[in-house]
């Protein structure tokens, strides 16, 4: 299939959510300065919200009597290293009562702030707890006001954030002796353990500075 071309019956296959228009209108009316764009693709509506307003917008959507977005399905992020702002943080909202669906998206991160900070939505939906921890762990985006912002999937002493696009895919320096030989339990690990090196076809490149360990609380 050629690029940009769509198959037969695309429009009928993925109908728009009947509440999408109402949701967009509500956000536009209540927060005219917070909404920066509305995108539609394959029947899914995305509202792009300014990062500093996300908590207010979420709260308003949850409490709106005709929409009642009472369920946070998911939070995740996408890294676009060439773009500024660099990260998309994506919220999938759902209403179990009205079956309304919306995707909120905000854009954060630039060269000065490798670990951008946005407000948590755990105050709106407690479900955000694990999702925000996962985004923090894998992307290094911080959520201010989160009750327990620690790594969730990676070990607590891990350096770097694996789902960033510039995360090295190979080369973790292992201690001597190699894992084949056991390090006694109470002995400290040699310095440099876990430091990442990038192995290229020309040999081992210089270890890149861990992207953000300066302000990383791990």
């Amino acid at each position: 299939m050629a690029e940009g071309q769509t198959g037969p019956g695309t429009v009928a296959l993925w109908p728009k959510n009947p509440h999408a228009e109402a949701t967009v209108t509500l956000v536009r009316e209540r927060f005219p300065d917070a909404i920066s764009d509305v995108v539609e693709y394959r029947g899914e509506t995305t509202i792009i919200v300014r990062a500093e307003r996300i908590e207010e917008v979420c709260r308003a959507l949850r409490d709106a009597p005709e929409l009642r977005f009472n369920f946070l399905a998911d939070i995740t992020a996408v890294d676009w290293p060439e773009r500024e702002p660099r990260y998309d943080v994506v919220y999938h909202l759902l209403s179990l009562e009205t079956s309304a669906v919306i995707r909120l998206k905000l854009r954060v991160g630039d060269d000065e702030t490798p670990n951008p900070e946005i407000a948590t939505v755990t105050t709106v939906w407690p479900a955000a707890n694990f999702f925000e921890r996962e985004v923090f762990d894998l992307f290094g985006i911080r959520f201010s006001g989160h009750p327990n912002l620690t790594r969730i999937l990676m070990p607590s002493d891990w350096v770097g954030h694996p789902l960033r696009k510039d995360y090295p895919l190979t080369g973790i320096a292992l201690p001597e002796p190699h894992w084949g030989g056991q390090i006694p339990f109470d002995q400290p690990l040699p310095p440099g353990t876990g430091a990442q090196t990038l192995r290229t076809p020309d040999g081992v490149a210089e270890a890149p500075a861990p992207p953000n360990d300066a302000d990383d609380t791990r």
Partner: peptide, 13 residues
């Protein structure tokens, strides 16, 4: 990007 909203992950909360 492929993100999976895993039901077990959310249920564990």
């Amino acid at each position: 990007r492929m993100h999976v909203r895993a039901p077990s992950f959310a249920n564990l909360q």
